[in-house]
Simulated scan of single mutants.
Amino acid sequence: MKRRVDGVTCGGCALSAAGATAAPSLWLSMPRTQRHLGGGFENEGMDLTVLFTELPLVILGGAFLPLLVFTALVRLTARRRPRPE
């Protein structure tokens, strides 16, 4: 089966890239994350292991969640349209 690159494919990739960059910036703006990264009073509660545990999951979730939603929407709308013969 030969696949072609079209607007839907490029849109999915762009959405995935946007999610992978937006999710960490949102994660960094949360008060809990700022506290763990040294924003607490006199470094109270500072825990840098969140960079190794939470950050990769945030990036993966930010990349894959929009892509999964986009794929589901494309498949649902493709079923409703009649196929040209």
Rank of each mutant, 00 (worst) to 15 (best):
residue 74 V to Y: 09
residue 44 E to R: 08
residue 19 G to N: 05
residue 22 A to D: 08
residue 65 L to P: 04
residue 36 H to W: 14
residue 32 R to F: 14
residue 5 V to G: 02
residue 50 V to R: 08
residue 5 V to S: 09
residue 56 P to V: 12
residue 27 W to V: 05
residue 30 M to H: 13
residue 52 F to S: 15
residue 26 L to W: 14
residue 63 A to S: 13
residue 68 L to I: 11
residue 41 F to N: 03
residue 13 C to E: 00
residue 80 R to Y: 06
residue 24 P to A: 14
residue 69 V to R: 04
residue 57 L to S: 10
residue 82 P to S: 01
residue 20 A to Q: 02
residue 60 L to K: 08
residue 42 E to S: 04
residue 37 L to E: 06
residue 12 G to M: 06
residue 42 E to Q: 09
residue 78 A to V: 03
residue 12 G to I: 02
residue 10 C to H: 00
residue 53 T to E: 15
residue 51 L to P: 14
residue 1 M to L: 13
residue 59 I to M: 11
residue 80 R to N: 04
residue 47 D to G: 07
residue 9 T to D: 02
residue 76 L to H: 12
residue 21 T to F: 12
residue 20 A to G: 13
residue 33 T to I: 14
residue 69 V to F: 06
residue 2 K to R: 15
residue 12 G to W: 00
residue 79 R to D: 11
residue 66 P to L: 02
residue 68 L to M: 10
residue 21 T to R: 09
residue 14 A to C: 03
residue 16 S to H: 03
residue 84 P to L: 05
residue 30 M to E: 12
residue 58 V to N: 00
residue 3 R to E: 03
residue 46 M to E: 15
residue 82 P to Q: 06
residue 7 G to V: 04
residue 55 L to R: 14
residue 34 Q to C: 01
residue 81 R to Q: 11
residue 9 T to G: 02
residue 65 L to H: 04
residue 80 R to C: 06
residue 46 M to K: 14
residue 22 A to N: 06
residue 15 L to D: 03
residue 45 G to M: 06
residue 57 L to G: 14
residue 4 R to F: 09
residue 80 R to Q: 10
residue 10 C to D: 00
residue 8 V to W: 04
residue 20 A to Y: 05
residue 3 R to S: 05
residue 76 L to N: 09
residue 56 P to Y: 08
residue 10 C to G: 00
residue 69 V to W: 08
residue 53 T to A: 15
residue 43 N to R: 09
residue 41 F to H: 00
residue 44 E to P: 00
residue 43 N to C: 09
residue 29 S to N: 12
residue 84 P to R: 05
residue 53 T to G: 05
residue 21 T to N: 04
residue 78 A to N: 11
residue 55 L to P: 02
residue 13 C to N: 00
residue 80 R to L: 11
residue 11 G to L: 04
residue 6 D to H: 10
residue 38 G to D: 02
residue 17 A to E: 02
residue 19 G to F: 04
residue 58 V to C: 06
residue 85 E to C: 01
residue 7 G to S: 05
residue 25 S to W: 14
residue 73 L to W: 06
residue 49 T to Y: 15
residue 1 M to H: 14
residue 78 A to E: 12
residue 69 V to H: 04
residue 77 T to S: 14
residue 24 P to N: 14
residue 29 S to L: 13
residue 65 L to K: 01
residue 79 R to T: 11
residue 34 Q to D: 02
residue 8 V to N: 02
residue 81 R to V: 11
residue 17 A to I: 03
residue 63 A to R: 09
residue 44 E to K: 06
residue 28 L to D: 07
